[in-house]
Amino acid sequence: MPEHASRSARPRHRARSVATHTVLVAASVLVLGPFFWEVVTALKPFSETTRLPPTLLPHHWQWSNFSKVFDSLPFGRMFLNTALVTVARTVGQLLFSSMAGYAFARMRFRGSGLLFGLFLSVLMVPGLVFLIPQYVLLQDLGWLNSLKGLIIPGVFTAFGTFLMRQSFMALPHEVEEAARLDGANPWQIFWRIALPLAKPALLALTILTAMWSWNDLMFPLVINTDPEKMTLSAGLANLQGEHFTDYSVLMAGSLMATAPMIVAFILLQRHFIQGIAFTGSKS
């Protein structure tokens, strides 16, 4: 800023900056406040949660709320189920979406237009339309109350295929052409050349799939009723049914169920945010 301007502009600039931060800090309190309350409640004894006025920090730090969650649910098992389902779905989606997306973007084959149109129609239909037949099919296969019942339908995705196709289409043709002239077959070109160049899209798809898979409720609620095979979301719904007003235990459970996603987000925040912005600009 030039010297002569700054002298008159500084107070106004200052005032504006203070106003901006006031609004942003107020909004931050509105967002973080509930999380703070979740943590604090998870550490209070039940008797303290029903005290008025409420205590800001626990008078008595009751860590046993966390073990109570394990007493009423096979929480560790659910945790493992959720992690396995999330990883398996994500890996499957990445592989199959990029294979199909590459074929749609770069290869010519009869029926590709029709096929892609059908894929897009899946994208436009709300998820609950698939649910009854999926339930019936999984029942016929004997896959209800099993992890594969949760995983296998989840590795197929029209959205992922669409996202990967868009990203392969944006790559320059030259490198692939050179590899083709060198005698590489289509799979080698896809696997060794195109796929590494599509990293931003792969990362975005990983984050979105993992988030969706970790957090989804209706599908696991319907498919698995055996607590040993449940995911955390359905498990929390059960926990709420059992400890209806014991909010310390409920908050301890919800805190543990959401912690991995929150930690992943804080560690990989740039990638999360870029992933969202990436899909935002692509769609």
């Binding site: 509930p34 999380f35 309350w37 979740e38 988030m211 970790w214 957090n215 409720l217 955390l232 979301s233 929390l236 719904a237 709420q240 409920l250 908050m251 459970g253 919800s254 805190l255 169920a257 959401t258 996603m261 929150i262 992943a264 987000f265 999360f272």
Partner: peptide, 11 residues
């Protein structure tokens, strides 16, 4: 990024 189920419980 947090599970809607957990956020609904919190609220």
């Amino acid at each position: 990024v947090t599970m809607p189920v957990a956020m609904a419980m919190l609220w």
